[in-house]
């Protein structure tokens, strides 16, 4: 009999294979796919920043408008892209399950990791450009910013894990999740400061963990930013960890169902 690999080695080999294949797909799938990966947030940021500065809004709640928009937008995209990429991981990789070493969970976790990695690159490019344009892009509190971003990424991963299984089990879920995604951009405070929303509506909006994450990232960025009172790191992490645990449990329970035809 030929030598066999241990399960950990197989998983590692599979993760590397999927990572490289997915990276290729994400960056070179169509003509200059990597360009559009960068352009989507750039367009959003450019448009909103132009709009706000034309009305001479140079500060938002004590922070530089451009930086406030860049940081919020990038943090939001980190969540949304991770969530959506992980959500469609199983669906898009079904031909790969012909190799029984590839488990549905492998594709989901690798996609999440790849998206986080790509967003770091995209963010670095955009922030660097902003620095050349004369904005102060060094975070005041690197640790808070980092932890809040990590929380958003983890929540994106958890959201994607849960929704991908739900989507495979009940296809109608896709429509509902798409409808939910739509207003998320607005109610998460990407283009309006949470602190300016009157009570009790502010507390309602802060039930959304992404809104909490965005406020925390921004406060970490500039210490003079008036963060909405009530934004909480532990609330964000509660959502992130609960959704990831639930996602892991769903994958454990329905692993076979996801590949069975």
């Amino acid at each position: 009999m030929t030598k066999t690999r241990n399960p950990l080695a197989i998983t590692f080999d599979v993760w590397r294979a999927i990572f490289l294949r997915e990276a290729l797909d994400r960056l070179f799938d169509m003509r200059a796919a990597w360009f559009w990966l960068l352009m989507e947030p750039v367009m959003h940021i450019g448009f909103i920043t132009a709009l706000f500065t034309v009305v001479r809004l140079h500060k938002i709640a004590g922070a530089d408008t451009a930086v406030w928009i860049i940081v919020g937008m990038l943090a939001f995209f980190l969540f949304r892209r991770t969530g959506i990429q992980v959500m469609y991981a199983v669906d898009c990789n079904s031909p790969m399950f012909a190799y029984r070493q590839v488990r549905p969970f492998d594709t989901a976790i690798v996609r999440g990791g790849l998206e986080g990695f790509l967003m770091v690159l995209v963010s670095a490019i955009i922030l660097l450009t902003a620095a050349f344009l004369g904005h102060d892009v060094i975070p005041d509190d690197l640790i808070q910013t980092g932890i809040a971003l990590l929380g958003l990424w983890l929540f994106g991963l958890g959201y994607g894990l849960v929704s991908s299984v739900l989507m495979a089990l009940v296809p109608e879920t896709e429509h509902i999740l798409k409808i939910l995604m739509m207003p998320l951009y607005l109610i998460s405070g990407v283009i309006m400061p949470m602190g300016s929303v009157p009570l009790p509506y502010r507390d309602w909006l802060l039930l959304n963990p992404i809104a909490n994450g965005l406020e925390l990232v921004r406060q970490g960025y500039s210490q003079y930013y008036h963060m909405a009172p009530g934004a909480s790191m532990s609330y964000l992490y509660l959502w992130a960890l609960v959704s990831i645990m639930l996602g892991l449990m769903l994958y454990r329970r329905f692993d076979l169902k996801l590949v069975t035809q």
Partner: peptide, 18 residues
């Protein structure tokens, strides 16, 4: 995978098998 080249597909299968 249809969108990838023969070589890229082959690479994937090689890597999956260690």
């Amino acid at each position: 995978e249809g969108t990838l080249t023969g070589r890229q597909n082959a690479k994937f299968v090689c890597r999956v098998h260690g």
